[in-house]
Design a binder for these strands. Structure first.
Lengths: 193, 193
DNA sequence: TTATATACGGAGGGTCCCTCCGTTTGGCAA
DNA sequence: TTGCCAAACGGAGGGACCCTCCGTATATAA
């Protein structure tokens, strides 16, 4: 009675947080190596935890897929500000595009899993789309302001180009080719009109 | 030595053919009711045969999916000539459009399963597309020749309209709505320019 | 009718899903 | 520090599914 009945109970246990993190990491690796159909027991094994622990943290398969996906998007968005902190805006944009490739490689694996679910996929994609848009807009605006790239660049065009690059992927050697195209794209952006 | 070494061996056993047919029928029903993830054991159960029999006829899941799909397309294409044999060309076209709806309802279930497979889907779809195109072309040409519909109708437009009708399906009541639209479409086709 | 190639059925071994519950451990109060 | 106990752990186990293998049954041809 005397205690506030809010839900700010005790601090979450350190092992719980650690295992959750390990599971997401293991799931990401599993999706990348085995594909979206990787078994949950395999993920638990990779993470070095029991299957029960996996199910406590992620009651459904969708839950862990979403966790992986959300984290990737978050890291990609955070990557923009991080790169801007240590590089010139132009180089930050260039590096971020490369980061985008890794993101797509992950999304390519996670995407089908999401698509296979009934409903539920759109909000997740929409939310992630907004974050990515913010990130690329920030990068382009800074690069333009710094004179690193031509001023008539629409951030969304850059995003479209990046997404476009990734179509027709899944061939071996695709990623190397996409990296070369990104370099070419950057050359184009740097060329003052 | 004295016998031709071709592969025209003995006649296939009647029970083998019968069970194969039952399996395809059961698979179709299973896809329709349970969805593309229906278990192979469930299909065997529906067909009233042992699981071993299913695997002998269809060594992979893909094989039975393909069998169902191919048969549906075949039946739809055959439906065109069948209807032309018993109805006026205009009515045959109308009935065939309705038949198309059932086909789409099936394809909608089979399609995702095909899409989920890696590769292999395109040839199947391409082959079926050609058959459907032939069928609709035949129907439209006959109906035009008979004066049942206006002469400036491109068969492919009819096909596109039919496919278009089916977008945004999977809602309850979709099929009834599509049927009404087909009636309206036919009225439009009948109206002489 | 008999021989035999064909086809049948389902037991069985392996994997996976998910739940349940006895055991362990980290956070916190005394 | 110590001890309590909520929180977290792990994995056995039941059920479903996948697929293979092989003994049994039967349709066809001679």
């Amino acid at each position: 009675m005397s205690v506030e009945s809010g839900e700010a109970g005790r601090k979450p246990r350190a092992d719980g947080l650690r295992n959750r993190e390990r599971l997401v990491e293991a799931a990401k690796a599993g999706f990348a190596e085995t594909g979206p159909e990787v078994s949950l027991e395999e993920i638990a094994r990779r993470a070095g935890v029991g299957i029960g622990t996996l199910y406590r943290h992620f009651p459904t398969r969708d839950a862990i897929v979403e966790a992986v996906y959300r984290r990737e998007v978050q890291q990609l968005a955070d990557g923009a500000t991080r790169l801007l902190g240590s590089l010139s805006p132009g180089r930050a944009l260039h590096e971020w595009m490369r980061l985008f490739l890794d993101y797509i490689a992950t999304k390519k694996l996670v995407g089908p899993a999401l698509a296979a679910m009934v409903g539920g996929t759109s909000e997740l994609y929409a939310a992630s789309g907004a974050r990515i848009t913010e990130a690329v807009t920030l990068l382009v605006e800074r690069a333009v302001a710094n004179g690193d790239i031509r001023p008539d660049v629409d951030p969304m065009d850059v995003l479209r180009a990046l997404v476009g690059l990734t179509y027709g992927n899944s061939d071996p050697g695709w990623e190397a080719s996409a990296r070369r195209l990104i370099d070419i794209l950057m050359d184009g952006l740097r060329a003052q009109a």
